[in-house]
Amino acid sequence: MGICQALHKQGSFMYSDLNQRLKADVRLEEGLQACMNCGICTAICPAAEFYEYDPRSIAITVQSGNHEKIAALLESDTIWYCGQCMSCKTRCPRNNCPGLIINVLRKLSQETGAFIKSRMGRQQYLIVKSIGANILQFGYCVHPTSLVPATHPEQGPVWRWVYENMHEVYAAVGANLDGDGPGAMRKISPTDLKELHQIFKVSGGLKLYQTIGHFSQLKAIELGLTDENGDADMEKYTQYLLNE
């Protein structure tokens, strides 16, 4: 069974009501009043300087309500280039905010599984696995113990030294790494972690994690990254994503 068939079977690619689903998100109301195609957002956008990325055309596409074009956006790398700096919000002469439109498209791409169709989209799985897990486990998006030097070469050689002498270094700069009581990088109490967990549950965050995991598994199977039982091998898939 092809991936698309699999997805259709679960009714996840609901192209027919994409527009409705976009409009149901309150952020679109805030993000797109009416675009006059002026290009100020693209002119100010840092992502547009580096990528084939044009927030104006995203605003226009969503405004057009064209199903095929919106579906293509959901499946594209494009929507993942935005750095969420929100500079576009400060300048748009129509008070739109393409950064918010992007938020809505991303969410829909995650919910429908369209994200697995693009390289940038597939990275969602890695983000859930790292930042998504960190926030629930530690109460921090990024925790020093999670920044393993081998998988984070961008941190540079000094980081390896910091990592290996973590407790001494953090104490020396006055932080309270994993300690009880106040201070930077303190341990987040179990009560607070429970609350955080509850927030993710009630707000739909956990469900989104599951959805991303689910579609990523389907993609792994499609790619033949399976174990002896024919189930998705997510370790192999992770390696695949890291090298993609």
Partner: peptide, 27 residues
């Protein structure tokens, strides 16, 4: 066809402007 996002003065007092050429779709 494009609206200015901002202007900045350079050391020689000339002005650098940023816009999108919306007909070409390029910043």
């Amino acid at each position: 066809r494009g609206r200015l996002s901002e202007a900045a003065e350079r050391a020689d007092k000339s002005i650098q402007i940023k816009a999108e050429d919306t007909l070409q779709g390029r910043p």
